[in-house]
Design a protein around this nucleic acid. Structure first.
Length: 426
RNA sequence: GUGGGUGUAGCUCAGUGGCAGAGCAUCGGAUUGUGGCUCCGGUCGUCGUGGGUUCAAUUCCCAUCACUCACCCCA
């Protein structure tokens, strides 16, 4: 019996982990730079948390959650991060100790969708949430942060899309406007859209069905239905983005699928790298009513989540240098024992070291040293042991010299000092 | 849930109704103990699985499973 990873869940092998580390570090560094602090919440939450926050008419809740019962508790593997963050924010009364809270998180999410490029059943999200700031300044700042992050990673072809669906009042009004527009055309819509027309008419807007695209031509835009306060919020956001010199487009068809959003919605897309049809790197928006919905105080909030695998796809093709390494090649038992001791002395100095204790020819060991991208090789054979030396080989320069055993650590340290520390690119 | 594509060596893929192939990787040799390039050689396969047609199936047919891309939806 040959075991395989569960469908839609991927192993991340050492070959690709370097890019993950780079992205994780870049995201965390950027988020901290903007005043965010990390939170880690459980992967498992009460099922009702997601039903309440995401909405029971959404696809995520209706057919994509990994839910089960354990000792008569209904539990779900988190399909997204915002609900958990809000739950933790409310549970710990965070609003009582500070007026504004900025959190970031990273971790796996679970949705039982049909996998394809850029969409997996276990996938990683990196996200930020701001509690207690009604915006629009923090809305603009989030977008500035994201654009800066992607640019610093070298991802090109960025498209920043923004929209506003307004608060509850504007949203209700828009719903009616849209229904008035669509009802006469109901027969022209795709069957999916027909069935959800009355339940969730906004979803028709971002349908990719040609029928629906045709039908919504000339439809009222969400912007048209905004009340004065919502409109002022959105217009100021646009002005701030312009001031920050962030190119953006107002996209009236941008309506997020999760029910909790209000006012600002945004999305950043790219066609860089190997991204397939799933070209949305990050999506987010404001959810001013969610904290209250989940039993907390009336605190306005905004957040985003980016798909880590998608950002990685956008980066694909980039090579990372291997971290510097000292490769110890001892021949014979006596040399291997000495090599083990030497290896630990070097590691104690923070020098990444591999000891090749295998039986085998020196040639095979040096071949491995080379394929590992080692900076230095230390040859310890009969000859060296006999004369109390170790041969220090510089793999790149093709030079070698015999060094007394008593001096080898010092010599290696001098050679490796120029090299980048292990953490920097591993 | 719907539709398309692909399953042959560790990887990327050729190929044929009649002995199973290449490149890369790996291992060894050319150099008794010296890596990158070069040259020579070796190892590695139930040709996804099950059934059918046939003297003969990896090839043709049917089924099935897996992977993959796209739709839906989403990050």
């Amino acid at each position: 019996m040959q075991f395989r990873a569960v469908k839609g869940m991927n192993d991340i092998l050492p070959e690709e982990i370097g890019l993950w580390h780079e992205l994780e570090r870049a995201f965390a560094t950027t988020a901290r730079l903007y005043g965010f602090e990390e939170v880690r919440t459980p992967l498992l939450e009460p099922t009702s948390l997601f039903v309440r926050s995401i909405g029971d008419t959404t696809d995520v809740v209706q057919k994509e959650m990994y839910s089960f019962e354990h000792h008569s508790e209904q539990l779900t593997l988190r399909p997204e991060g915002t609900a958990s963050a809000v739950r933790a924010y409310v549970q710990h009364n965070v609003n009582a100790s500070e007026p504004v809270t900025r959190w970031y998180y990273m971790g796996p999410m679970y949705r039982a969708e049909r996998p394809q490029r850029g969409r997996y059943r276990q996938f990683f999200q990196a996200g930020c949430e701001v509690f207690g700031d009604p915006g629009p300044a923090c809305d603009a700042e989030l977008l500035a942060m994201l654009v800066g992050l992607y640019q610093s990673l070298g991802i090109g072809d960025l498209r920043v899309l923004v929209n506003s669906i307004g608060g509850p009042e504007s949203r209700a009004r828009y719903r009616e406007l849209l229904l008035e527009f669509l009802r006469p055309k109901a027969a022209e819509l795709s069957t999916e859209s027909q069935s959800r027309l009355e339940k969730n008419p906004l979803r028709v807007l971002d349908s990719k069905s040609p029928l629906d695209k045709q039908a919504i031509v000339g439809a009222p835009s969400t912007i048209d239905a905004l009340n004065d306060a919502d409109r002022a919020h959105f217009e100021e956001l646009c002005a701030q983005l312009t001031a920050l010199e962030i190119p953006f487009a107002v996209e009236p068809s941008l309506v997020r699928g999760l029910d909790y959003y209000s006012r600002t919605l945004f999305e950043i897309q790219s066609d860089a790298g190997d991204l397939g049809a799933q070209n949305t790197l990050v999506g987010g928006g404001r959810y001013d009513g969610l904290v209250k919905t989940l039993g907390g105080p009336d605190v306005p909030s905004i957040g985003f989540a980016m798909g880590v695998e998608r950002v990685l796809l956008a980066l694909k093709g980039r090579e990372l240098g291997k971290p510097p390494l000292v490769f110890i090649a001892p021949i014979g038992n006596e040399a291997v024992r000495a090599g083990l001791v030497l290896g630990n002395r070097l590691r104690a100095l923070g020098i990444r070291t591999e000891v090749d204790g295998r039986e085998g020819s020196l040639k095979s060991k040096l071949r491995r040293a080379n394929s590992m991208g080692a900076t230095l090789a230390l040859v310890m054979g009969e000859q060296e042991i006999a004369q109390g030396t170790i041969q220090l080989k510089d793999l790149a320069a093709h030079t070698q010299l015999d060094v007394a055993q008593s001096e080898i650590v010092q010599r290696v340290r001098e050679r490796m000092q120029a090299a980048v520390p292990v953490e920097a690119n591993s």
